[in-house]
């Protein structure tokens, strides 16, 4: 048994790396999922603001430390009240 361990156990690193890798892999395998998400976001947001669907961009990205869903949604105008 080591009394003084220099590094933390490697399992936590394996778990975290695996999580990020799979977020990335799965997003590419199932682009259909991102498309479904896009449609639902449009439906939800459109109740409140008018958006430019053509320019809308949604991506699932993974940095070294975390996975992020990045959405860039240009707003054309804000609705005055709920129709």
């Amino acid at each position: 048994m080591k009394l003084f361990r220099e590094d933390p156990p490697s399992k936590s690193q394996a778990v975290e790396r695996l999580r990020l890798i799979l977020v990335h892999d799965r997003a590419q395998v199932s682009t259909g999922l991102i498309e479904l998400l896009r449609v639902e976001i449009i439906n939800a947001i459109s109740k409140y603001v008018e958006i430019d669907e053509e320019q809308m961009d949604i991506q699932l990205t993974a940095s070294k430390t975390k996975a992020e869903l990045v959405a860039n949604i240009p707003v054309v105008k804000v609705r005055r009240a709920l129709d």
Binding site: S10, K11, A14, V15
Partner: peptide
């Protein structure tokens, strides 16, 4: 904790 376990 040097290997992924069954639960992981």
């Amino acid at each position: 904790e040097e290997m992924l376990g069954v639960d992981d």
